[in-house]
Design a protein around this nucleic acid. Structure first.
Lengths: 349, 349
DNA sequence: ACAATTTTCGAAACCGCTTTCGTAAATGTG
DNA sequence: CACATTTACGAAAGCGGTTTCGAAAATTGT
């Protein structure tokens, strides 16, 4: 590997000059500059970012902590899309991504702060990290620029992005009501994530707005998984008084809900309508096609990247949380009801 | 940020000694060692891996190039699973992953070799990189330890892993024949990837083994996408003589094929059987459930990691390509045929 | 032609850690 | 107790860059 010293010797200049040329500084003559560049390429020179990083205290690197409750690696349907989009826009700005291994053998290295400082990342992107993680506090204190999604990190150098989950949940309920539903169940979030709580809040306020009853037996906390949705729905279906619609706080749970419903011999839509949340790609393949509230994943990733860039480059910038509008995506799992209440359900079964 | 010098001063020893303590070298006394450790933790010391990397020329980092023809970011259904598994096992060995941005703004940084050397990664993992990439040659020459999946990299420090695609394709044909099929179409790979070519070869040899005709109009090259499978199948269905089974070199194409078939008013299985390749997670959600040849993604990722570790740590190790057995997964899209040839097709349509 | 600027370049310190090698102290041996 | 070994520690060089600051050289002005 050629170094700047090799180039310097070959060109008859000092290493300092080579460094300047390669970094486009202005205080170097035109012909020397040319000569140096030529020799650099002849020698197949590649800058060593490690050495540079040591000198500049920058690494052009963003650290990523990608965990999730279900430990699905890169397979989390929603976060994965946000991450892909984040990667694209941060990459265009010259940053590579470093993914921290989830279980590092060196137990000195257990905190976010330790890992980040060790790798000298310029910024951090957190996905799927539980709010309850005890190391979050010291992270925010550390002053490392941090962006997270769906996790309410706040500090002078930390911010986060979420969908407008309250509003999204309201859209869902509004639509259900508009379609004539009044007996609405909600499958919510057992982890107390920020989006989960917000969706629950949105659900409740919308129900109150429409003067509809909120039954505790119809609010079931689950884990965002397909199986969770399935089990929760089974529980709902045990009762003799059935809701006409189920709103699931995540699409995977909605998929599970649909399975439970068909398994019980009921027809989705006709007997019980379903609406989800997220609009994950998988929905293109499930039948019947699920009506849901879309999160704009691409935009979220992009905005998260832009915000992190600001956090890193402008020390005066004081962030505030970013909220992205959702969209109602009407497909086929919500069907209009007559105003008469669910008496015909029993006939259908 | 505390450095080893801070610790050294505080402990009344030299930086060299601190370094030794922190790295568990043996030539340091017990009480000094204790004192240093204590002070290190008091000072909330975190080692700076950049500085260490400069000194040791190691980075405990694996570079990842994750591209794919369809540019799906982290969303590639097969590679994503392999990667997740790779990450887990390489992570347990203390390596973090660095993902190179796909389009770096600095055009000096376009080759794999340049990027890898710049970041001083200890090894490289390539996924979805097209065989035709002109920079592959210099990469292998560079001597950087490289592991790839489905890309036939070979060299003293480079190797790759694939499924036994030839064998897998044979299993598919064998099964089809066993189920009474003789008129078999194959949707193959237009990119001339290693797995694509191998599956084609497996298909052909199996057909020959069974003394079945290989019709060129029934071998259609496509792009592994759902849409590609759909269009290819449409083309096959144009003819008046239809195959009784279609073997798709990838599950996504098989999904597209199923759409085309139902769209044409035919019944999957009853009229035309379908078998795919990969067994991607998505198959849990498509109906009817696709019979396919499973690639053992978890094992592939794990073995790729182990092999890369050998490549990095044992300079005498000379690699040979890794091949993993596939499994036939019988679900419901292949249906038994009578031995009488496809005369009843026309009746069914 | 001489002073005043401006441009171009390099010496040297530094970033934080590792590693070799020599030396001083501690320990063992007879 | 004299001598041979071990053990414990540190000085210094090095990893490959960046950056400050001063000086020499080139340019400008009058």
């Amino acid at each position: 590997m050629a170094t700047i010293y090799d180039i310097a010797k070959e060109a008859g200049v000092s290493a300092a000059t080579v460094s300047k040329v390669l970094n486009g500084k202005t205080d170097v003559g035109a012909k020397t500059s040319e000569r140096v560049k030529k020799i650099a390429s002849e020698l197949n020179y590649h800058p060593n970012s490690i050495a540079r990083g040591l000198a500049t205290k920058k690494s052009d690197t963003i650290g990523v902590f990608f965990q999730d409750h279900l430990n699905t690696g890169f397979r989390h349907p929603f976060l994965q899309d946000v991450l892909a989009s984040f990667k694209d826009t941060i990459g265009k700005n010259g940053y590579d991504l470093i993914f921290f291994a989830n279980d590092h053998p060196d137990n000195q290295m257990e905190t976010f702060e330790a890992r980040a400082k060790n790798r000298h990342v310029d910024g951090l992107f957190l996905l799927g990290v539980p709010r309850t993680d005890p190391n979050l506090f010291s992270l925010v204190q550390s002053g490392i620029p941090c962006m997270s999604v769906d996790l309410d990190l706040i500090g002078p150098n930390a911010s986060y992005i979420t969908s407008d989950n309250v509003g999204g949940a309201q859209k869902a309920v509004d639509y259900l009501v508009e379609m004539g539903h009044e007996d609405i169940a909600f499958i919510s979030d057992v982890f107390a994530t920020k989006p989960g709580q917000d969706r629950l809040m949105g659900f409740k306020t919308a129900m109150e707005k429409h003067r509809l009853p909120i039954l505790t037996k119809w609010i079931i906390a689950s884990d965002f998984s397909e199986k969770g949705g399935y089990l929760s729905t089974l529980k709902i279906l045990e009762s003799d008084h059935l809701p006409t619609a189920i709103f699931c706080a995540g699409d995977m749970m909605a998929i599970g809900a649909m399975e439970a419903i068909t398994e019980k011999g009921l027809k989705i839509g006709k007997d019980i309508s379903i609406i989800g949340f997220d609009d994950i790609k998988l929905l293109n393949y499930v039948k019947p096609s699920l009506t849901t509230i879309r999160q704009k994943k691409d935009i979220m990733g992009e905005m998260a990247a832009d915000e992190l860039l600001k956090l890193m480059n402008d020390s005066n910038y004081f962030p505030s949380p970013l909220s992205i509008e959702t969209e109602l995506v009407i497909r086929s799992t919500v069907i209009r009801r007559g105003t008469t209440k669910s008496t015909d359900d029993s006939i259908e079964v």
